[in-house]
Design a protein around this nucleic acid. Structure first.
Length: 458
RNA sequence: GUGGUCGUAGCUCAGUUGGUUAGAGCGAUAGAUUGUGGAUCUAUAGGUCGUGGGUUCAAGCCCCAUCUUCCACCCCA
């Protein structure tokens, strides 16, 4: 058989030891914060039924789902003849639903909603859960965008209280403070966006308006207006929107302008009230990072209904590294209506990229093996295994070189793995019962007892 | 999904208007040095030039397709 060049699918990556140590540092930090705030872990399968996933992320989202081809003879049982399948005019989607009924999860929120409905009888509400698992999107890879990446989700479901929003903001602030990333936390509320759409006389165009407004800081007001017109919003409505688009600066002035605009919009007033409450709490909390009320923040996922939040690194050019919001009725579609939830998701891979770019990983996390026993042969080997066991039971990460190779080679091994101490046990040491320990940084070498060794190495 | 971009040794990259046997540095292995590493010196190994077609007397170089990389758009973590 011809040798084939090994490769992995587009947009996926291998993680080598150094990367894993650093990734685990991120996961451990985030997990600890989640636990301190009283959240409990769950996991769900990497694949879900396509019926669970389809239609939850909008039209775009359905296209980005990885579908899993059915097992067995998946062409059997097709409702129509094979010639129809081979007909180039036949729509691919039609075929897809007959030959694939499973897909890889696109995020952790929808599987969580499914989980809550299925396990509603055993859960204690409000249910606070966290979940750290990979998700898959059939996107084109680019900077900060992978086809396989990890999300770290925290959600609380079964509580309408805005205290949850406040706590989630605290979690964001705590996580990024611990990781050493300076961030800007942007907040908005979907009800405010709905209120704006209503107030300018285009309530049915909410999505179009938010998608266009979202680009304000990126493309500028002229482009946004162009897009609004292009999306079928009337000239009059666009004119009414201008005072909102040009709003800048103080939170108070935004509130004043919106209050005036929302004279006839109840939903707008509701959103504004929610935002005021959240911001007041946050002011009391004295966070380490800045937060802002940003009217242009929209967020794509269609299921958000209340507060929305997005986090960006201040010192690196990267898309949002954390985002989320409140969804009033995510479980309704699975048969459990009236269950409000709010949650956020940390993008571990983007956080990694930011920390890498800014050199934020502490050196101390790279520590692996503390000491290496040099192997001088079978006699010495046996003797070393006992000493090794003693070090290991004292929680000192240690190892023995498995072959009686040249000392140079064994030293090289220690250097390359960054092992700071080498222990040499030869005939002399076995006779005298001491350990010759060499410091690989200073080159210093001395004889120690086991007790001294433990003290030195721990 | 749209547009662009990259691919030569394990890694980083040279490679002339298409012209004999595709090079360098780093790394690897062995030795100088049989229980003492990082330095130095010497030698050795390592390539279907991403893949498949095509043009040509001749292709790493030109053309087409395809895969991959990176980037922008769309959208998003």
């Amino acid at each position: 058989m011809a040798i084939q060049k090994p490769s992995i699918p587009k947009g996926t990556r291998d993680f080598s030891p150094l990367e894993m140590v650093r990734r685990n540092y991120i996961f451990d930090t985030i997990r600890n914060v989640f636990q301190v705030f009283g959240y409990q872990p769950i996991e769900t399968p990497v694949m879900e039924n396509l019926s669970t996933l389809m239609g939850k992320y909008g039209e775009e989202g359905d296209k980005l789902l990885f579908k899993i081809l059915n097992s067995g003879n998946y062409l059997d049982g097709l409702p129509e003849s094979a010639s129809r399948i081979l007909d180039p005019a036949a729509r691919l989607v039609d075929l897809t639903k007959h030959i694939a009924d499973k897909g890889l999860r696109y995020d952790l929120t929808v599987p969580f909603a499914r989980y809550v409905v299925q396990h509603q009888n055993e859960l204690v509400f409000p249910f606070k859960r966290y979940q750290i698992q990979p998700v898959w999107r059939a996107d084109r890879p680019q900077k900060g965008r992978y086809r396989e990446f990890f999300q770290c989700d925290v959600d609380v479901i079964g509580s309408n209280s805005l205290l949850n929003e406040v706590e989630l903001a605290q979690i964001i602030d705590t996580v990024f403070t611990k990781l050493g990333i300076r961030v800007l936390i942007r907040l908005n509320n979907r009800k405010i966006l709905a209120g704006i759409a209503e107030a300018i006389g285009a309530p049915e165009k909410l999505t179009d308006i938010t998608v266009a407004m979202d680009k304000l800081d990126k493309t500028g007001i002229d482009k946004v207006n162009d897009e609004l017109i292009q999306r079928g919003i009337t000239y009059e409505s666009v004119v009414k929107l201008q005072p909102i688009l040009t709003l800048e600066g103080k939170i108070k002035s935004k509130f004043d302008a919106l209050t005036a605009l929302f004279n006839d919009s109840e939903i707008g007033r509701k959103g504004l009230e929610e935002m005021r409450t959240v911001l007041e709490y946050l002011k009391e909390m004295t966070l380490h990072n800045k937060f802002d009320f940003d009217i242009t923040l929209a967020r794509g996922l269609s299921y958000y209904t209340g507060t929305i939040v997005e986090v960006k690194a201040m010192d690196a050019a990267m898309g949002s590294i954390c985002g989320g919001g409140r969804y009033d009725d995510l479980t309704g579609i699975f048969g459990l209506p009236g269950m409000s939830g709010v949650g956020i998701s940390f993008g571990a891979d983007r956080i990694y990229d930011v920390m890498n770019e800014l050199n934020l990983f502490p050196d101390t996390i790279q520590a692996s093996t503390r000491a290496l026993f040099v192997n001088f042969g079978s006699e010495e080997e046996k003797y070393c295994m006992k000493l090794l066991a003693a070090l290991r039971s004292a929680d000192i990460p240690s190892e023995i070189y498995p072959d009686a190779a040249k000392v140079k080679k064994q030293m090289d091994y220690a250097n390359r793995k960054g092992i700071p101490f080498v222990i040499l046990i030869g005939k002399d040491e076995i006779e005298t019962g001491v350990l010759t320990i060499k410091n690989m940084v200073t080159g210093e070498q001395k004889a120690s007892s086991m007790e001294e060794a433990k003290a030195l190495l721990s």
